[in-house]
Design a binder for these strands. Structure first.
Lengths: 235, 235
DNA sequence: TAGATTGTTAATCGATTAACAATC
DNA sequence: TAGATTGTTAATCGATTAACAATC
């Protein structure tokens, strides 16, 4: 046992650069969902849970839960289960929720306003510092307590405030230019609602593209498939 | 050839209940993205494309593209490639975009309005018939050309108009009750933005849950991971 | 201690990639 | 015809599930 640990240690040291993702992508994708369910259990005042019970609630196999949670450390205790609070904290940390990132929202249309109103950011430890728009009528005002600036001030603001996240809810045509401005100003991640797949290879910024249309299509597909199975064919 | 078709036919008949998904789930998930890129190529006036070229544009392997497209019929032609228009049409059909589904939006808050304004539905062949809300001040008005009804009229409306899709942008607390109303009125699919995972086992309705918060967390994770690799550690 | 439940290995399953013969 | 490019098989890879010994 001892010797195996030593070998592992040496291996990790040597490969620090090569940096294989210790946690597989498939697991990362599932973590936000764990986070959500554990958060609910926590809110209910539950202290511990077994992989078997969680598997029933979340509709996945207990085996997968144990396998997943073991990717980033043995959190459970044999004969007891998992400590919900501890586990929730660990997942939060792993996902970066405890990093205290800041964000700006570009585009104060309906979607921008919806994102200004939601408590989603706060729950994930993200602070919204400002809204940006080109409409002079709203520049200077506050929307759900968030101040609106002119888009011309975006670059300076991001640089000065060291903004981490830029939320893009501008029209498709403006998306690339606004994204570039943010990236050049040092924004680290862009949350893109603008219905394009942004490719910013030149600058060190990660992009998360939201394609609601894709989701709508999947829903149509499921409806169609279900209809066919139920015998309500194309009619 | 004939005989193979016959055998297949018989097989399908016998297994209509068992219903193995002819097209794997992993492929279905990718189809909306194909649809998007092919739509763009079509708009550019392109007529044909090879798996090799498409693979470069979409950043996937050519092998995967050929494998994927072959799941639902040999659309390509050796030495030529794929006919973009034909392929686009086939994928549209497979996804249910040509079914002419109807939709209602429940909840006329910022998100509901954003969805009322977008051209996303029309592009996927979905017609929005109405908005529903409890706010008497807006009931009877029109938002982006869509008429607003009181939520009390939801059941009758859905039943009478045979609404296929219900979009849920109501507050979390109201989500389940509104969803049940729609499901009972015969709505086939629910597009759920209400930050809960709806479980409607009793009624024949499919649900597509949107969890924007999960996406925000993945972005945070990517930023954190990138920071660590770049050496801008936890500070 | 006995019972419960994890951590972990091995077996299975499915998805991706590589390769090339078929064919336009 | 020769060249290009698909359709399809086989090989690889990774993810999921099952099983059980370790251990709380």
């Amino acid at each position: 046992m001892e010797s195996i640990d030593k070998v592992k240690g040496t291996f990790d040291m040597k490969n620090r650069e090569a940096a294989k993702p210790a946690v597989p992508d498939a697991v990362i994708k599932r973590l936000p969902r764990y986070h959500r369910y554990l958060g609910e259990l926590l809110a209910e005042g539950r202290l511990r849970i077994s992989s078997a019970e969680l598997s029933k609630i979340m509709n996945v196999t207990a085996s997968q839960i144990r396998q997943d949670l073991n990717c980033f450390g043995g959190f459970g205790q044999q004969g007891y289960g998992y400590n919900i609070k501890y586990l929730y904290g660990k997942i939060s940390e792993l996902l970066g929720v405890t990093q205290g990132y800041t964000a700006v929202i570009c585009g104060a249309g309906n979607l921008g306003r919806a994102l200004a109103a939601t408590r989603m950011f706060g729950r994930r430890g993200v602070t919204r510092l400002a809204l940006f728009d080109i409409d002079e009528n709203i520049v200077g005002s506050e929307i759900y307590g968030i101040k609106v600036y002119h888009i011309d001030e975006l670059y300076d603001f991001c640089q000065k405030e060291k903004v981490a996240i830029g939320v893009l809810t501008v029209p498709k045509e403006a998306a690339y230019s606004v994204a570039m401005t943010m990236a050049r100003a040092g924004v680290k991640g862009i949350w893109n609602f603008a219905n394009t797949e942004l490719e910013i290879d030149a600058l060190p910024v990660v992009v998360e593209n939201i394609h609601l249309g894709d989701s709508l299509m999947r829903l149509c597909y499921e409806i169609k498939t279900k209809d066919e199975v139920d015998g309500n064919g194309d009619a």
